[in-house]
């Protein structure tokens, strides 16, 4: 805006208008999109991983069952923040290690040299020459994988419980109709489990929302990053000097999260009502 050319001459409402529309503030507003993007991408991956994990735990093959049990229990028994710190760096090193083996087979020096992790330049991920946005997308993707792995374990547990909660008589009836195991599973058990899974899944969604500020720990420029950046006190050398306003920025984030959880609660209440239609549960009032 033209009037914002010289901020030192502004006061009152104009100062605020200009202050709240600076380039950095626009990045701040966009970072809310980053959070929503993470939620939008993670939720389906979590469901797929959760379904896979639940099926692994129900599997007739013993090692697969152990894998499912191990996955769900280890992830749930350890603070998730450890996974958020561990998975991205472990993935990053794993990918670079593999690329190193493929692209530079002639380099014979060990990759781990004391306290360093050295791969050849061609194996770097992303390449040192790639654009900034590639680095950002790569970082975001690693964060997304970490989130999906952790929440996949929770979802697997919820879905496993829901599959077992389907009344046994329903499955026996299907068997009596001559359905095969596979048909019983897909047509009866999976169809009916959702109403039992819903309380757990809605809880999981709430937890997922509340876990998004941890993106900040993974180096993604999310809302927490910008709130700290913009709120910190600015001396007169800056265009818009102000004292330490981080308190207000964080209060704003708090309100944003309260609004998100409040809205989600309303939506889930409606879905529960719809799904319990015709079911003999308390939710349907039958």
């Amino acid at each position: 805006m033209e009037m914002c050319a010289d901020p030192s001459t502004l006061d009152g409402i104009n100062w605020w208008m200009c202050y709240l529309t600076t380039g950095k503030h626009q990045s701040f507003y966009l970072s809310f999109g980053t959070v929503l993007l993470l939620l939008a991408f993670t939720a389906p991956v979590v469901m797929v991983l959760g379904f896979g994990g639940a099926m692994a735990r129900k599997s007739k093959i013993l090692p697969l069952r152990w894998f499912g049990l191990g996955y769900t229990n280890i992830v749930r028994g350890v603070p998730d923040i450890i996974f958020f710190l561990f998975v991205p760096i472990a993935m990053d090193q794993g990918i670079e290690y593999l690329r190193h083996q493929v692209k530079c087979p002639d380099v014979l020096e060990p990759i781990r040299q004391g306290n360093d992790f050295v791969v050849c330049t061609a194996a770097k991920m992303p390449l040192g020459t790639s654009a900034q946005w590639v680095h950002e997308v790569y970082g975001f993707t690693l964060a997304l994988i970490a989130f999906a792995l952790v929440f996949g374990a929770f979802a697997a547990n919820t879905l496993y419980g829901a599959m077992n909660a389907v009344p046994r008589a329903q499955l026996e009836t299907a068997e009596a109709f001559g359905m095969t195991d596979r048909q019983v599973f897909w047509r009866i058990q999976v169809k009916q489990m959702w109403v039992y899974a819903l309380p757990g899944l809605s809880n999981l969604w709430m937890i997922l929302i509340k876990a998004t500020p941890l993106l900040f720990l993974l180096g993604v420029e999310d809302i927490v990053y910008w709130a700290r950046e913009l709120g910190g006190s600015k001396t007169t050398r800056f265009a818009y000097p102000h004292p330490d306003w981080r308190l207000y920025y964080f209060a704003f984030l708090l309100v944003f999260y309260l609004f998100m959880t409040w809205g989600s609660e309303k939506v889930f209440a409606r879905i529960t009502k719809r799904l319990s239609h015709g079911q003999a549960t308390v939710g349907a009032g039958a």
Binding site: K210, D244, L254, Y257
Partner: peptide, 17 residues
């Protein structure tokens, strides 16, 4: 509602400020 509806992470930041 306030303490269950918002992330502990943000609560820490806010309280510290």
């Amino acid at each position: 509602f306030i303490f269950r509806g918002s992330p502990l992470f943000i609560q820490f930041f806010l309280a510290y400020e």
